[in-house]
Design a protein around this nucleic acid. Structure first.
Lengths: 177, 177
DNA sequence: TAGGACACGTGAACC
DNA sequence: TGGTTCACGTGTCCT
């Protein structure tokens, strides 16, 4: 007699299992750290690997200093894009941010309202502290400007940088009326 | 009658399935792009996400590796297309352009290959000629940079500017071998 | 109705 | 020998 009565979805289920196992296998291929050759362990390893990768990406972006719209924003300041279209009543304070890159180098971000002679004062301040400007990018818009310095400091960094930050802040500070 | 004959591993298998599904769920949590709420799609998405993350890590590491310490420059190179990569035989001379804006103001454009201390020398040169920097925009990419100054000159412009142009040219000039 | 996705219980294989 | 992992076929739910 027909002892072979198949469910209608027998083959479909076989194919489904095949695809699923294929994906498990493919997952193993892209995850370097495989603790055990089991489905459960493979998934756990994949999860762990994804977390590690995401942390690594964040760390690398932090080391790069990254873009004003991302890394700086994470530091808690207004991003360039946010400031780009000043509203009628917007009143921006000058802002100075100093982030160590290690090996005596820093990223210096200055956000200011443009005033005559102000840029010169900033350069003089850096010069007076024997700070070398390695690179500088500035974007200016609607009377506001945002400058990104890469600077290098000789001598006792800690003391110098605190003083420099204070000096720069006082320079770019919006004068009270 | 004992109609309930359980396999020995019935409960164990239940727990195993529970853990496996839990991992599928946890995987969904760390993968941002979920195309479909199915196991198979979840695994595919996870694989794709891992590949993307690993590529991102490689790209960031590449950016960190090519020019030590110049984070902003690397950021610039990141946003530049591949066509900006200089070819083997490309040889760019430093270039200085000075255009009068009237009323003692000038636009100064400098195109240079980045070298250590070079930017500082330019600033010192401007300072030595009592030139005020009113604004500055710089774009840098793959070791090259183009800076656009707006400067103001006190004193006898004609003489000063000729000298300044010459001095700047000698600074940014690519040293002959 | 057909087809897809899933959970289930079971037997087998492997330490 | 138990403990664990897996593949299998099936029933059920949902479009």
């Amino acid at each position: 007699m027909g002892k072979e009565f198949k469910s209608k979805n027998l083959e479909a289920e076989r194919r489904r299992r095949g695809r699923l196992n294929g994906n498990i296998f493919a997952l193993r291929a892209v995850v370097p750290k495989i603790t055990k050759m089991s489905k459960e362990a493979t998934l756990s390893d994949a999860i762990e690997h994804i977390k590690n990768l995401q942390n690594e990406v964040l760390e690398l972006q932090r080391q790069l200093g990254d873009s004003p719209g991302e890394a700086w924003e994470k530091q808690g300041s207004a991003s360039c894009s946010e400031s780009f279209v000043p509203t009628e009543n917007a009143h921006y304070q000058g802002q100075v941010e100093l982030i160590s890159l290690g090996s005596s180098k820093y990223n210096l971000k200055i956000f200011w309202t443009k005033r005559a002679g102000l840029f010169t004062k900033v350069l003089e301040a850096l010069c007076s502290y024997k700070v070398q400007v390695l690179s500088l990018n500035t974007i200016s818009f609607y009377g506001y400007a945002e400058s990104f310095f890469t600077i290098e400091v000789k001598g006792e960094q800690d003391v110098v940088m605190v003083e420099l930050r204070s000096l720069l802040s006082s320079i770019v500070e919006v004068p009270s009326i």
